[in-house]
Design a protein around this nucleic acid. Structure first.
Lengths: 344, 344
DNA sequence: TTGTACGCGTTATCAC
DNA sequence: GTGATAACGCGTACAA
C-alpha cells in the first residue's frame, strides 16, 4: 500500500504543501475556509503525517521523555501516572520509553534525544553509577528519580530525586531491634548489586552494629539469579531456604515488599504464623503490602510526591531557573500487623 | 551544543558519507581497515546517528511494536517479557509503546507504523470494538492479545489471541454454585464497560440461571469511577459498601484478582474470616492471588503461552503463511484457600 | 493569504 | 572499494 504524503494531499486540495502544513499545525496565517477544506480532505484520505520526517525537520518539540528501566516493575506504576499527568499539565508531550535490562539507559537517552528533539529526560530506576563523560553527552536537562546517585558538582543540568536508602533501611532495622529482635534475617539483593540493594544492606549492618548485635553472614540471603530479582517467587524461595537451614531467627527483613510477601507465604506454608512465630518487614510501601493479611510493616516511599518533585525540578532546569539538584525525601515507617515486639 | 552529523564524521575521516554509513550498518562491500578507522572516529567523537533520519530513509526495518493500553497493569507484565524475548529471538527489534487511556490504540498504531516502518504490531488490552475501516488503515499484520474481539472475515492480516471470558467466568460461577453458594455477590466493571468486564458479568448471569438462582441486582457492585478501575483499593471500597448494605451473601466473585484482594482486606477489616464467613474468588490468575493468605481461588489465564502464541501467529502473518487468525485458549480454575463448600 | 524551493540527516543508487 | 547525489516526507523562509 502506497503511503500518501503531504504533496498528494496538496495536489488533491489544489493548494501548496505549505498550506497543508499550516492547516495541520494550527498556524495562524491561513484562511479559515481553506484550512477547513484541507482538513476535510486529510480526513477523507486518512492522511497521517510521517513523524520521522517531522522530527527531522523540527527544531523544537516540547517533549519530555521518561526512561524506565524495568517498566513492568510495579514500584514505578503510580509514578508513571503522575509523571504523565504533570508533563501534560505543562502542555508538553509525554513519551514513555522502556529500557531493556541489558541496555544502558544513558545510551538510550542520547539516541532518543536526537531522534525526538527532547526538552528534558526523566530516568526511573536503573544504574547507580554513570560515567560523567557519558552524562555530558546529554545536551538537555535530566532528572534521575528514586536512585540516590552521586552527581558531579559541575553537572548543572542534572538532578537527583530520591530517598536515602541506607538511612531508611537503618531506621527500619533499628525499629526491629527496638522491638526486641536479635536474630534478624535479611533478604538482600545479590552480592554484585551496587544500587539500592547495597544501600539497604549497609543500613541493616549499621543498625545491628549500633545495637551491639553481631552481623551473621548466615542470616543474609541473596536473591536467586534464575528468578526475577524482586519477585514474590524469589522471596518465597529465599525464605524456604532460610527455614530449611534450621538457622534460628525471629524476624525477616526483606529489602523489597514483593520479597516480604513471598517470605510470608513461605512461612505460612511451613505451618508457622506471622507475627507469632516470625515477624516480617518489607521496604518500599507498595500497595500490596498494605492489602496483605496481615499487612506488612514497611518503609513507605512517597512516590507520588517524588514524581511531582521530579517534574518540578526538571522544568526549573529547562527554564534555567535556580533549583536544588539533589532532593532527598524522607520515607515513612508504616507499622503493619506483620511485626511484633518480643520479650527479651 | 551542535549536533555532529555523518557529514562531519566523513570529513574527519577523509572519506565520503556513504563509507561512514557502510561502516555503521555492517555493509559487506567496505575495506575492513577503513571501516575500523571510521568506527574509531565515531567513537572518539561520540557520534550517534539520528534515528528520525534513518527511519525516514529506510524502507525496511524489521521492527515489531507492542502497544499496551495501561502499561502499568500488572496483568501484562509477564507477557511483555515474553513478547520481548520472542521478538528478539527472531532477530527483530522490539518497540514497546504506551497507549494513554484516552488515546485510540489504532490511531497510535497507524502513526507508529509510518514513523518506524513496522513489520508487525501486537495490541495488548484496549478496546473491544474497532471500526473495520480504521483497522484497514494498518498496512502491516497485527495480533490482538487477551481481548476476545470479533474480527471481520475479510480481515486477513489480523489475528486475535484470547480466552473466552464469558465461558471461563461461567465456569467459575458454576463452580461456586456447586460449592453450595446461592448468594454470590459480584464485583463487576462499570455498566458502560463493553470489554472483558461485560463478558465476565454475562458468564456470571448465565451460570446463576443454569443453577436456578435468581439474579439479584443488589449483589452486583460496580467499580468506582474515581478510583483506578481494577485496583485493590476499588475492591476494598466496593466490598465495604456491600458489607455495610447488610445484604446477605456467602461468596464474593471479583472479575479481577486485584479486586478480590481488596475484598479480602475489607472482610478481614470487618472482623470476618475467609473462607469461614465469606468465600472469595478472583479472575486472571495473577501472581498476588497465589501468594495471598489465604491464596485466592481464581481463573488462571496462561498469559505466557498466549504471548508466545501471539508472536508465533504474528510471524506467520508476516511471512504470509496460513495460520488460524482466532486462537482461544482455555483458562484453568485454580483452587485456593479463599473458597469453601458450604452446607445447603 | 498562499505557493515555491530548500534543507533536516540519513541511506540507496549509481558511477567510478 | 569508494564517493557523489538523489531521494525519504515534512516545515519554513522567502517571494509572490
Amino acid at each position: 500500500m502506497e503511503q500518501i504524503t503531504i504533496k498528494e494531499i496538496a495536489k488533491l486540495c489544489g493548494v501548496g504543501v505549505s498550506t497543508v502544513s499550516r492547516a495541520m499545525n494550527n498556524h495562524p496565517d491561513i484562511n479559515q475556509e481553506t484550512k477547513l477544506k484541507v482538513l476535510e480532505i486529510i480526513k477523507e484520505y486518512n492522511y497521517v503525517p510521517n513523524n520521522s520526517a517531522r522530527n527531522l525537520k523540527r527544531t523544537d518539540s516540547n517533549t519530555i521523555a521518561v526512561l524506565v528501566k524495568g517498566i513492568t516493575n510495579p514500584f514505578f506504576s503510580p509514578m508513571i501516572g503522575v509523571l504523565a499527568r504533570e508533563v501534560k499539565k505543562k502542555r508538553y508531550s509525554f513519551v514513555l520509553q522502556q529500557v531493556e535490562e541489558d541496555e544502558d539507559e544513558i545510551d538510550v537517552a542520547i539516541q532518543l534525544e536526537k531522534e525526538k528533539r527532547l526538552k528534558g529526560i526523566v530516568f526511573l530506576g536503573g544504574m547507580y553509577i554513570h560515567k560523567e563523560e557519558k552524562l555530558n553527552q546529554l545536551t538537555v536537562p535530566f532528572a534521575i528519580s528514586t536512585v540516590n546517585m552521586g552527581l558531579p558538582e559541575s553537572m548543572k543540568k542534572g538532578a537527583v530525586i530520591s530517598i536515602d536508602d541506607e538511612l531508611e533501611s537503618y531506621r527500619m532495622v533499628n525499629f526491629l531491634c527496638d522491638c526486641g529482635h536479635k536474630e534478624i534475617a535479611i533478604l538482600a539483593a545479590s552480592r554484585e548489586d551496587a544500587s539500592v540493594g547495597k544501600c539497604r544492606l549497609d543500613g541493616y549492618q549499621r543498625a545491628l552494629q549500633d545495637h551491639g548485635i553481631q552481623y551473621d553472614d548466615e542470616l543474609v540471603v541473596c536473591t536467586k539469579k534464575d528468578v526475577n530479582t524482586y519477585s514474590m517467587e524469589n522471596g518465597y524461595e529465599m525464605t524456604k531456604e532460610l527455614l530449611d537451614s534450621g538457622k534460628k531467627f525471629t524476624c525477616i527483613y526483606a529489602v523489597a515488599d514483593a520479597l516480604a510477601i513471598g517470605a510470608c507465604k513461605a512461612i505460612f506454608d511451613a505451618g508457622k504464623s506471622i507475627p507469632g512465630d516470625y515477624s516480617v518487614a518489607g521496604f518500599d510501601g507498595q500497595e500490596t503490602a498494605a492489602y496483605y493479611h496481615p499487612s506488612i510493616t514497611t518503609v513507605y516511599q512517597p512516590r507520588e510526591e517524588m514524581a511531582e518533585a521530579t517534574i518540578n525540578i526538571l522544568f526549573h532546569l529547562i527554564k534555567k531557573e535556580p533549583v536544588e539538584t539533589k532532593r532527598i525525601f524522607n520515607a515513612r515507617l508504616v507499622l503493619g500487623g506483620s511485626t511484633r515486639k518480643i520479650e527479651k
